[in-house]
Amino acid sequence: MPFRLIRPESLPWLDVASPSPADADRAAAQLRDDYERWSRWSLGLFAFVVAILGLFTALGIASTAYALDVGVHLVDVVAVLVAGGIGLAGTSVLALLWRSGRRLTRAAAAWTRLPYEVSGRTRTAAGWLGARTVNVEARIFVRVTTSTLALLLAVACISVAVRDVVTGTSTVTLAAAAVGVLALLCGLGQMGGVLRIVSGLSEADPLWHRIRTSVKRG
């Protein structure tokens, strides 16, 4: 079966003009299952590694050639173009995954909230528990882990770039900055998807509902 960013069975639950609370549980489950597929996570991880290696290699070769002032050589140009193309291809896949994932998680969160906002479904202690234990579900936990690692990589690479700007640029300054920015965007993007799912589930939490209501009234 070919990989699809959004499965055909999820499409009817996206951008529904008049959503019905009776369909909410089925729609939310379908959309979450689509977003949380292992194949999406695996493709994202692969594309992330490819993008980083491609961009780092391309910018590293270009920066080294410039620093050594060895002139333009065909082999260097070819290497930069190939590595840069690979990096951009990986980045494009990441952008497509982020865009489709945002649609899925926004819709899933909206469907999850719908019964509580429209039909007055009772908020119980199970809702409080579910909004917290979702983070240790395997398919969510791996996304929390990889997004955290991406953010740590971003901090490390951006720190190297900033240090080089202060003390003097090197052949890895530009490459480190590019990898840092990419890692930062990927970490924030993936963590955002998890937070949207948690936000939807939090609608079932009676404690959070009371706190939010009191803040709005205040």
Rank of each mutant, 00 (worst) to 15 (best):
residue 114 L to A: 11
residue 57 T to W: 07
residue 73 H to I: 07
residue 162 V to F: 02
residue 30 Q to L: 10
residue 184 L to Q: 00
residue 47 A to Q: 01
residue 197 I to C: 01
residue 85 G to F: 07
residue 40 R to H: 15
residue 36 E to L: 15
residue 206 P to N: 09
residue 206 P to I: 09
residue 49 V to Y: 01
residue 102 R to S: 08
residue 218 G to Y: 08
residue 204 A to N: 01
residue 118 V to C: 07
residue 151 L to D: 01
residue 112 T to G: 14
residue 48 F to A: 13
residue 161 A to K: 04
residue 91 T to M: 11
residue 9 E to N: 11
residue 1 M to Q: 15
residue 70 V to K: 04
residue 102 R to W: 04
residue 92 S to P: 01
residue 84 G to W: 02
residue 71 G to A: 06
residue 21 P to C: 10
residue 54 G to H: 04
residue 105 T to N: 03
residue 177 A to G: 12
residue 164 D to T: 04
residue 80 V to C: 12
residue 81 L to S: 08
residue 74 L to N: 07
residue 54 G to M: 03
residue 67 A to Q: 11
residue 19 P to G: 05
residue 135 N to D: 13
residue 25 D to W: 02
residue 15 D to Y: 11
residue 17 A to P: 03
residue 72 V to N: 01
residue 120 G to H: 03
residue 95 A to H: 11
residue 72 V to Q: 05
residue 157 C to S: 05
residue 8 P to C: 07
residue 167 T to Q: 15
residue 62 A to I: 06
residue 4 R to K: 14
residue 129 L to Y: 09
residue 132 R to P: 06
residue 185 L to A: 09
residue 50 V to E: 13
residue 103 R to I: 00
residue 3 F to L: 06
residue 172 V to N: 10
residue 8 P to V: 09
residue 62 A to T: 04
residue 58 A to T: 09
residue 80 V to A: 12
residue 79 A to F: 08
residue 158 I to N: 03
residue 81 L to H: 03
residue 63 S to K: 01
residue 37 R to K: 11
residue 137 E to D: 13
residue 24 A to I: 06
residue 183 A to N: 03
residue 132 R to F: 12
residue 198 V to T: 13
residue 75 V to D: 12
residue 42 S to L: 13
residue 80 V to W: 09
residue 22 A to C: 01
residue 55 L to G: 00
residue 11 L to F: 05
residue 110 A to S: 10
residue 89 A to M: 05
residue 176 A to F: 05
residue 214 S to K: 14
residue 33 D to C: 05
residue 199 S to E: 14
residue 115 P to D: 11
residue 195 L to V: 14
residue 114 L to Y: 09
residue 103 R to T: 04
residue 47 A to W: 00
residue 122 T to W: 12
residue 77 V to S: 11
residue 99 R to Y: 09
residue 36 E to W: 05
residue 94 L to N: 03
residue 43 L to Y: 02
residue 103 R to C: 02
residue 6 I to T: 07
residue 38 W to Y: 04
residue 92 S to C: 04
residue 43 L to Q: 03
